[in-house]
Structure formats: structure tokens, C-alpha cells
């Protein structure tokens, strides 16, 4: 299997600040990769270099076997991007918006309408983008990124600033977009999101990729103890949960009990530290 994305020693400096610091990353075709990291970790800069928007200070990035920089017109129709903000033409309706993007890629309007239906915006097709809710706007911008059926899709924090309902709603949409073998790269700072959607997760901090693996492997490697919380609030931390639960069962104290193994959040905090960064 060929690599959809190959990044080697990728570095980006802004003056004295090293935003991305020697990143190596390989993404297989058809993978759904989540890039996870705190704000300012360098996720967006890394993504923008892979998309071909920024010139790397050092190293290389290749997408579908082609160098990402300088801007390669042959590569552009094969990638789809959704940038952090909602990048729309002002005062156009949802339908006009996606038709315009379709035209830029030489895609028929009927195909654009299918995407509008797929992201559930048929009823909002004649609403101007300014009148869409945050979740609707994100769904439209994802549809605009996918309207030309690209082989690789980049989504930059698609669920930031959405309420929990809108986030879950978007997850349903996102989990389906790589069914057809499409490669998806998504940045987020939500652990649950990466855990729910991504086949593999890369955790970034201070411009470096700290780990890159499946969520299950990352949690297993953490080797965190299991926490059992009883109905009365008592918490038991144990490395032998089966024994502990059997004991609680005998004591008839299993009602309302919660069992937590390690989460991606534990992995993340273990790697990036717990201190709050303003």
C-alpha cells in the first residue's frame, strides 16, 4: 500500500519561534488520522504545509507521491480542504455556495446537490450562509471540501465552537467520509473526537509529533490503572479490576458502580503535562 501522505523532517520557523519541529509522519491511503494537540501545538501549521499553503523552512511533504510545495495544480483537484474558519462567499445561499465551489473544480451542479443532501442541508439550501447555525455552516464547508470527491481530505478543527449535539451530529457525517477508501486528516483538540473517529492518532506538542498509533495501542501502552467509582463516591484504583469487581459483587455493592480504564485523555495528559497554559 502506498502512502497518501509522507512527511519527513518537516520544520517551520516564524522568526525565532519554531512552530513545527522536524516532524516525520506517514499516512496510509484510506486511513483516518486525527492530529491531536493543545492550542498552539503546531497542528494547523503542519497541516498547511502538507496542503501546500506554506513553504517549509526545512524537510519535505508529499501528498499522493507529489511534492506539496510549491503549489502543484495537478495535485489540487485530488485534495479537499476545509480550513479552520468557515470560508464562504458572502451573502450566497448554501446551494449557490456549493455550486460555485463545484464550478471551480469542473463538477456538475447535480453532483453538488447530492452533497447538499448527504450533509442534510436540503431544507437550508436557499438560506444564506450568514443565516446558518454553526453546525450547519460546518457541514456545508465539509460538503464544499468534498464536492469534487478528492482522494485526500484535510479538516482543520471542524467541530471547534460547536455545542455537544452539533458535534455528535457532525461525527456521524465524518465517520462515513472515508468509507470509500478516502484518506482523511483531521485536527482537533477533543480527545473523545479523535478516539471516536480516527483509525490512528498523532499527538502533537511544541511542534513535534510525540506518538502516532491507533487509540487502543496508545491507551494500552500507557498501562494506566483502572478506577472504580462506587455509588457512594468511594474510588478504588486497581491494576486487577476483575478481582476487585468480584469482591464488590460479593459485598453486594455493584449498583451504580462506574469502571474507567485509561482514556486517550490520560495518554494526552501523560504526554503533554497537566499544567494549564494560558
Amino acid at each position: 500500500m502506498t502512502a497518501a501522505i509522507e512527511v519527513a523532517g518537516l520544520t517551520k520557523d516564524y522568526g525565532d519561534l519554531r512552530a513545527v519541529d522536524g516532524v516525520d509522519l506517514a499516512v496510509d491511503e484510506g486511513d483516518f488520522v486525527g492530529i491531536l494537540g493543545p492550542n498552539g501545538a503546531g497542528k494547523t501549521t503542519l497541516l498547511e504545509m502538507i496542503e501546500g499553503l506554506r513553504e517549509p523552512t526545512g524537510g519535505s511533504a508529499a501528498v499522493l507521491g507529489l511534492p506539496a510545495w510549491p503549489r502543484n495544480p495537478a495535485l489540487l483537484p485530488r485534495i479537499g480542504v476545509q480550513l479552520q474558519a468557515s470560508s464562504f462567499f458572502e451573502r450566497l445561499t448554501a446551494r449557490e455556495q456549493i455550486h460555485t465551489f463545484a464550478s471551480l473544480y469542473g463538477v456538475a451542479a447535480s453532483h453538488a446537490d447530492e452533497w447538499l443532501e448527504r450533509v442534510g442541508l436540503v431544507e437550508k439550501a436557499d438560506s444564506r450562509v450568514e443565516d446558518l447555525s454553526g453546525g450547519q455552516a460546518q457541514r456545508l464547508s465539509i460538503a464544499c471540501a468534498l464536492v469534487h470527491d478528492p482522494e485526500v481530505v484535510f479538516l482543520d478543527e471542524p467541530t471547534s465552537s460547536l455545542d455537544p449535539q452539533a458535534r455528535r451530529n457532525l461525527w456521524d457525517l465524518l465517520s462515513g467520509i472515508n468509507d470509500s477508501g478516502r484518506t482523511v486528516v483531521l485536527t482537533t483538540h477533543y480527545m473523545d473526537e479523535a478516539e471516536a473517529l480516527a483509525d490512528r492518532v498523532a499527538i502533537m506538542d511544541h511542534g513535534r509529533v510525540l506518538v502516532h498509533d491507533t487509540p487502543a495501542a496508545l491507551i494500552h501502552r500507557l498501562d494506566a490503572p483502572t478506577r472504580i467509582t462506587l455509588a457512594d463516591g468511594e474510588t478504588i484504583t486497581t491494576r486487577e479490576p476483575a478481582v476487585e469487581i468480584a469482591r464488590l459483587s460479593e459485598a453486594n455493592r455493584l449498583d451504580g458502580v462506574r469502571v474507567q480504564t485509561g482514556t486517550l485523555e490520560d495518554v494526552f495528559l501523560d504526554l503533554t503535562g497537566r499544567e494549564y497554559r494560558a
Binding site: L76, P77, S87, L104, Y105
Partner: peptide, 17 residues
């Protein structure tokens, strides 16, 4: 200004036009 702020300028840069 508007296109720069919404990153539409960047978005168009990544379209084959």
C-alpha cells in the same frame, strides 16, 4: 479583507483556479 478573514483567499488558493 473579507476573503482574507474568512480564509476564503486561502481556500481559493487550494482550488485549481
Amino acid at each position: 479583507q473579507g476573503w482574507r478573514q474568512t480564509k476564503l483567499l486561502r481556500r481559493l488558493q487550494l482550488a485549481p483556479v
